[in-house]
Every structure is written in C-alpha cells, then in structure tokens.
Nucleic acid binder design. Structure first.
Length: 260
DNA sequence: ATGGTAGTGCGACTA
C-alpha cells in the first residue's frame, strides 16, 4: 500500500503534471498541499475518473489540502484540532481501509513556513507544531497504524540541505524549529525516508529562483512520519526527484512510503 | 546587499 505526499503549488496550474504523476506513481493514497483553491474549484472529477475518492479542505489563493484515496475513507477530519480560531486550511485526515490490507490513518499537513523569524508568522508556526505534537500524542493512544505526512517546512538536519549555511536564521532551519520537529519524532515516530535512505541526500524542494534546481541546491522538508504500528509494516520509501525536471514543475517533488 | 521565480488575480502577498 503506497502513501504519497505532494506539495503541488496550485492544483489547477499543475493539473496535467499531477495527473501524469498519478498515472505513473499509482499511489493508493495521496495528500496534496498548497492546492490554492476553494473546495468547489478542485478538479475532483479528474481524480474520480481515475478511481480516487476525493476529500478537499480548500482555501482561496493560499494553502489548501486534499486527500485522495483509491480505498474507502471514513473519520474524515478537516483542520488541525486544537484551535477553533485557526482559519488556514492546512490539515486533512482520514482512516483508509483497503480490502486487501489493514487500515491506515493518513494525516496530510501543510505546516506553516514561519518566515520571517522572529515575528508573528514564526510564532504561528511554533504554535501549530505544538498542536501537531498534541494531535500525534492523541493518535498514538489508539495504538493504530498512521502516517503523518506533508510539507513540514522543517529541515531536520544539516545533511538535509545542499548548503546548510545558507539556511541559518531561516524559519525552516532555526534550532527551535528543529527541536519542535524532534519532539514530534521522539514521541516514537519513524522518518520513513531516513529509514529507507539513512545517508543519501533526499531533497524534496528546490526554489524556483537562482537556478536552484540546476545546482541541486535543494532541501528535504517533505516528510512521512510513521506510527510504530505503521513502521512494523514498512517496506520502502522514496522521492520522485525526476518530477522537478519536467515542464512547469512544482517547486516540491512527491515523497512516498510503501506499507504492507 | 539586493534580487532573483512562480501563483493568484490584477496589487501585493506568500513562498
């Protein structure tokens, strides 16, 4: 069972690219970030025609997340629990039950960027990360297989950046950001990409500017965190790097994990 | 030190 995450940077600007990727990657479940549209503008039919159930938590212009599943979904949650006043569409979750495998709960997240730091945007990022930790703790109490995946906007370690010095002082790499991410991982979650590729550079984002892609000046900020019960079922994980070299690409590439 | 690119939607913000 393949679960993937892809920050698409506008679903409608990227639709042909994304459909192409779905047809080659064939994820059982995919969460998308930065769809940048309201629910009604999401091209649901294109995905339904390809056999996916579509759940959307949209927002005009900014943010917006979606969860697409080939298998039946239940317990759909839209919005990260813990702050009713948070109006940004950055979280979607569902319990996915394939007929040929055990259920998996999938949470798709678009963690705030947080720049400039310090400032109100950085405060929002850290608060959001605290809420995510609380939510992960809640999910862990159920002792079930789950995957929390998406654009975390966190560079966990120096080896996750081509040029770590360039990121000093950035909200994606500040010690406090990395500590907050470690707090979540240290609840007992497994970083699926590092499980499959302990040392290799597995960048998932290259800026559109300054020829970042051509210089391979990338960072690893899209992650898949597995609960212990999901980690028991781990088979493989990877990055679809070639997507970044295509025509009109997103600045992110898909990341995926295969579970039994 | 600044500006470089892309998306939304048509100015300015976000990334």
């Amino acid at each position: 069972m393949k679960i993937a995450s892809f920050n698409v940077n506008s679903i409608n600007a990227r639709l042909p690219r994304i459909l192409e990727w779905f047809e080659s990657a064939k994820p059982d479940v995919a969460v998308l970030q930065e769809i940048k549209c309201v629910d009604e503008k999401f091209p649901a039919l294109e995905f339904e025609d390809r056999g996916y159930n579509v759940e959307v938590h949209g927002q005009k212009t900014y943010n917006g997340v979606a969860l697409l599943s080939k298998h039946p979904v239940e317990d759909v949650v839209k919005g990260l629990p813990g702050d009713k006043d948070d109006e940004q569409a950055r979280y979607i979750e569902a319990l996915v039950t394939p007929d040929d495998a055990e259920p998996v709960r999938v949470g798709g997240l678009y963690l705030p960027n947080g720049n400039p730091a310090p400032g109100p945007k950085y405060d929002y990022k850290l608060k959001w990360m605290k809420r995510l930790k609380k939510h992960a703790q809640k999910l862990l109490e159920n002792e079930e297989a789950f995957v929390l995946t998406g654009d975390y906007n966190v560079i966990p370690q120096e080896e996750d950046a081509h040029d770590p010095k360039a990121w000093i002082g950035d909200a994606l790499f500040l010690p406090e950001t990395r500590a907050a991410f470690r707090e979540i991982v240290n609840l007992g979650l497994t970083d699926a990409i590092r499980q499959a590729h302990p040392r290799a550079a597995c960048f998932t984002f290259w800026d559109y500017q300054r020829g970042a892609w051509e210089k391979d000046n990338g960072i690893r900020i899209d992650h898949l965190l597995l609960s212990p019960q999901a980690a028991d079922r781990f088979k493989d994980a990877g990055i679809d790097r070639k997507e970044r070299g295509k025509e009109k690409p997103s600045d992110h590439v898909p990341a995926w994990v295969e579970l039994s």
